[in-house]
Write a protein that binds this DNA or RNA. Structure first.
Lengths: 113, 113
DNA sequence: TTAATACTTAGGTCAATACCTAAGTATTGC
DNA sequence: GCAATACTTAGGTATTGACCTAAGTATTAA
């Protein structure tokens, strides 16, 4: 119900828990009901449901109730946004390391000549 | 001190906090001392240091003390591992959505409501 | 129409997290 | 040497997070 703007921060926080990460891994393979998702876990159902609510609250999954069954599925966008953030950081530091490398090479060439 | 094997889970958890995410963004542009990193934050220094310890404990940054100054820098690998995990999930569901799309097209052709 | 199923709500505990202040230690500049 | 600098340690509080049990509600199957 509460779809957040999907800040990478929220995505990361949601994925920082082993249970929720496992739920996402399961849902990556396709939608599932609450009880299907809960089955592999020892945890009591209400505890498990909290994790689903976190995922939904952060906008990582969408759920729809049909009859007495609630079906859950992944929302791809926030994952893409998180990936982009990680890649942006990577770009920053590899650019920097490249410059450092170039600089060191210059130094070395200067010595050699 | 404690360099973890950098499970994506730990990386995500560390990045789930706004302060730590900002620290990483700063460090992506190059190494910095503790006080340089802390300057933009209102937070008391000991509180800030805790965040640095989380990042170091999760293996996302490396710190070396030289004299009275501690210099901090990014460790790229865990970020790559986290990116890879996100991309793996994406691969799973895009393959599936492609298949679903094809299937729905077929169904619609055969469906007379 | 009753019983089973599939959640859902309402509480309550316990540990971890995010902050704080106050008082250290170790280096360095004057 | 002595003061300023750059952390560091040692506490303490308050909120959030991850779990639990017990008792609902709504839907479906028999």
């Amino acid at each position: 119900m509460t779809l957040q703007p999907a800040l990478p921060e929220h995505t990361f926080q949601a994925l920082g828990d082993p249970t929720r990460r496992a739920i996402v891994e399961r849902l990556s393979q396709g939608p599932a009901s609450v009880s299907e998702l809960a089955a592999p876990f020892e945890m009591a159902l209400p505890s498990f449901l909290q994790h689903l609510k976190v995922l939904e609250g952060r906008g990582l999954i969408r759920t729809v109730k049909n009859g007495r069954v609630r079906r859950c599925e992944i929302i791809p966008e926030p994952f893409d946004a998180a990936t982009r953030w990680l890649e942006d950081q990577r770009t920053l530091w590899s650019a920097r390391l490249d410059r450092l490398d170039a600089y060191l090479t210059t130094l070395k060439d200067g010595d050699a000549s």
